[in-house]
Nucleic acid binder design. Structure first.
Lengths: 202, 202
DNA sequence: CCAAAAGTGTTGCGTATACACCCATGG
DNA sequence: CCATGGGTGTATACGCAACACTTTTGG
């Protein structure tokens, strides 16, 4: 019989064109498993603490289950990750988001976080879940910067735009992004905001 | 606090050119989590029951963790899958391997098994773990039949061979497979028998 | 000599990549 | 008028898919 079983969630968001994750007081957000509730509902409860609105926009996925010995028993941690558009973060929690780039190698849970980032990159390449990191409307350059922040490399603008438009995941919203000291950008929205397998990049 | 936590393993093997899985008396092999032992070691203990030799040849991977309510508590099942060359199955357990094709839709755990097959297909396309389903030496046709059994479709012989050889995962063993009423086939072995990410098929 | 499986190349097509200039706006 | 970011097309290379015949052996 196992000792304690906990659910933890790595909450990702892209802020200022950099991949960030929620690390309140240096620890992953976590809750013990309570009686007769599903793992997913516990994970959602954890996320709800951090988000401004009811969670619908984000994307939740189970990552891995780790075990480690503790005293004369075994502790089991079930890890999830969650993708959150930065404009959905509660003001009071914003300062608890840490840039992944600047994360120290000896952060607690560093290996689990690294694995989560790997899985996140894969998800971006093979699904449409990037919608869960963006507001309803956005420009193609904003979308490209999200990909660049997460994949950790620059992409060619022309190839990126051609690829994205060819997948017909997007719809012109009609609006434009103005006010910046440059040519106004066309805004797009996602046709569907539910997870689908789609090969985006190789 | 969660009630019971168990580890289950879906054990796959390809027998007579068909994907099979171990279903003793209609149930997935399983064990309760015991105190102070890791999840992986429990999974290996389950597998060891079925294999002739010490498990080194096979491939073990964690699949998913499911929870379901039971009475006034929550049960947690951590599912693994394992790949076993058919010549490593203990004689006494051979008859407990069921063909996946002929599996009834209302087998207990049918959805978990279906998910395991999906993941298995993906693994074959993106890694070299197929080595864990084959004996040390084998012909290219035998290798192709493993892929066909798992992917559930036929492959072009010439394209398959060109692709496999171009990945330089294989080494000619020098031996030949004779005795069948046809031209003898060259035998190959894997250069490396540890998991690597390699794009095999699209 | 016949059945059975092994072995072997070429072509067309579509997708990915590399690359540079003009346009519209705000200040 | 200048700085900033938006927006656009082409040429090349590469990988994938389709396709049929000859070779070697056992019986």
């Amino acid at each position: 019989m196992a000792g304690s079983v906990r659910v933890k969630v790595v909450i990702f968001s892209v802020i200022n064109q950099q991949l960030h994750l929620y690390l309140p007081a240096g620890r992953l957000s976590q809750l013990p498993i309570s009686s007769s509730s599903s793992l997913n509902s516990i994970a959602k409860k954890i996320v709800q603490e951090v988000t401004a609105e009811k969670i619908e926009e984000g994307y939740l996925e189970q990552l891995y289950t780790f075990s480690h010995p503790v005293e004369h028993d075994t502790r089991v941690d079930i890890i999830y990750f969650y993708l959150l558009p930065s404009d959905q973060i509660k003001e009071s929690h914003k300062q608890s988001f840490i840039s992944y780039e600047h994360l120290s190698k000896n952060t607690a849970e560093y290996s689990a976080i690294g694995y989560a980032v790997q899985r996140l990159r894969w998800k971006l390449e093979y699904t449409n879940v990037v919608y869960s990191l963006l507001p309803k409307e956005f420009t193609l350059s904003e979308l490209q910067k999200i990909y660049e922040a997460i994949l950790g490399k620059n992409l060619d603008k022309r190839n990126f735009r051609r690829k994205m438009l060819s997948l017909s995941l997007l719809r012109l919203s009609g609006k434009q992004k103005t006010g910046l000291k440059a040519r106004p950008a066309r805004m797009y929205s996602f046709r569907h905001r539910n997870p689908m397998m789609i090969k985006v990049f190789s």
